[in-house]
Design a binder for these strands. Structure first.
Lengths: 247, 247
DNA sequence: GAGTGGTCTAGACCACCCT
DNA sequence: GGGTGGTCTAGACCACTCT
């Protein structure tokens, strides 16, 4: 057993459980692009046969991947690689709500996109070497024609070569990350604080200098654990709030 | 099968899977206090025998409860009802960090505790009838002798009769909820926004009127789904941030 | 009807904890 | 050494989807 009949390298000398090895193998296949977004995976028995493990072990691996939203399981249809859509990404990662608790659907206006070398701070946050090439994108997001988010995105050029060469980035980035660069987003870690609007932010958000803003410092993590984005958003929260769950 | 041999009411006419029925039954036992915090549960085979289901089904139920942190499983020892400790509760629900990303351990100073009838807003947030008896507690929390959170807690009197009669509430409430009132916290939903300090907040936090504050509006939910607390915190974030994970 | 994931069972062996 | 949870397997049946 233990995958000896398989072309894959299961078993080996580590002590990870079989189901964890199967999960990692499938996840790596997806991360490498061998199985693209939306693709139907082989069924549980077929995967088990290929890997030399039982169907129950494959099931446990797939259940873990489904929990992390890396695959989608549908009874009677099969198991599919999760395909990020603009709507789904917005739902997962854009948590602004209005006074009635309704989700805010923002528009986006690019200010500029520029390439440069990572500062010490940027390198630290993106886990790059200082001076590594990065892409910086600045934009303003609006709701009901009122600008309310002024944000700077910093991306490692190595992961996104060519992105935004035409000066334009889409409203929702994460689905494009997956489609064009094979990078699937897992989650984002955020540090939330406050700060008063400086001149630049006040101009961009059409508010008075000194207006209280919410500052969201986000690091976005891919399913292989790599940091793929650092984003600082200054938000004018009048009538809005940011919804999170803790515990 | 299907629990016909058991004194418990498994099976019945609903279509919930067996493992979900087992999970709910165990969770209800805990919520009712039949199995108190820290108690060792019967082992998987014994539970299965009592309920007339297989060990594998019990295992699936317990795994779900462990995922929700309602029980703690320890290989070689057994499965225990999760016991909220002040440290664990602070770790799960108090997400302020300092500039180095280190967790902030706050002190607490009570301003007052008063009883009253729920306003429309309070009733709405706590899912009570307007006029239902509530307990209101106001306090200031400090870090390194600097006050940084001024907050008002509103609790349904029906759930916490007698709480704070002596005018004092502990620094961490949620472990006391469990120990003294048999209420186990599941999670909290928060709405985060900003506002400028008014006179009262400025006085309490020793800052100037108009200083940007973070406003956290938290509703705390028990494992049976009941809303057990509404809390509004005004936070002076100088040098601090609030850490959350999204996605 | 064929194929898929979802549930449930039964049994084996392993890793870990305690005494 | 005895008891516990953790892993893995094998097989049965059910619910759902598609053709």
């Amino acid at each position: 057993m233990r995958g000896s009949k398989s072309g894959y390298a299961l078993g080996g000398h580590d002590h990870k459980p079989l189901y964890a090895q199967v999960r990692d193998l499938i996840r790596d296949n997806i991360q490498r692009g061998d199985w693209g977004p939306g693709k139907l995976l082989p069924n549980e028995f077929e995967l088990g046969r290929q890997l030399g493990v039982s169907q129950g072990t494959v099931r446990k691996a797939l259940d873990l991947l489904a929990r992390d939203q890396i695959v989608i399981r549908q009874q009677g249809r099969g198991t599919f690689v999760n395909q990020h859509t603009p709507a789904e990404v917005l739902f997962r990662f854009f948590q602004f709500r209005d006074e009635h608790g309704e989700r805010v659907v923002p528009t986006s206006r690019a200010i500029h996109t520029r390439r440069g070398k990572a500062t010490r701070l940027e390198a630290d946050r993106l886990e790059l070497a200082t001076g590594a090439p990065v892409i910086r994108h600045v934009r303003v997001r609006a709701h009901d024609d009122r600008p309310f988010v002024y944000e700077t995105l910093v991306l490692p050029e190595a992961l996104f070569s060519g992105l935004g060469r035409d000066g334009k980035l889409p409203n929702t980035l994460y689905d494009r990350f997956q489609k064009e660069f094979g990078i699937t987003v897992d989650h984002a870690d955020e540090q939330i604080g406050t700060q008063a609007a400086d001149g630049q932010a006040a101009r961009m958000l059409d508010i008075a200098v000194g207006t209280p803003l919410m500052r969201i410092d986000r690091r976005t993590i891919a399913i292989d654990g790599a940091v793929i984005e650092w984003r600082v958003s200054l938000c004018h929260m009048a009538g809005l709030h940011y919804a999170v769950r803790v515990g």
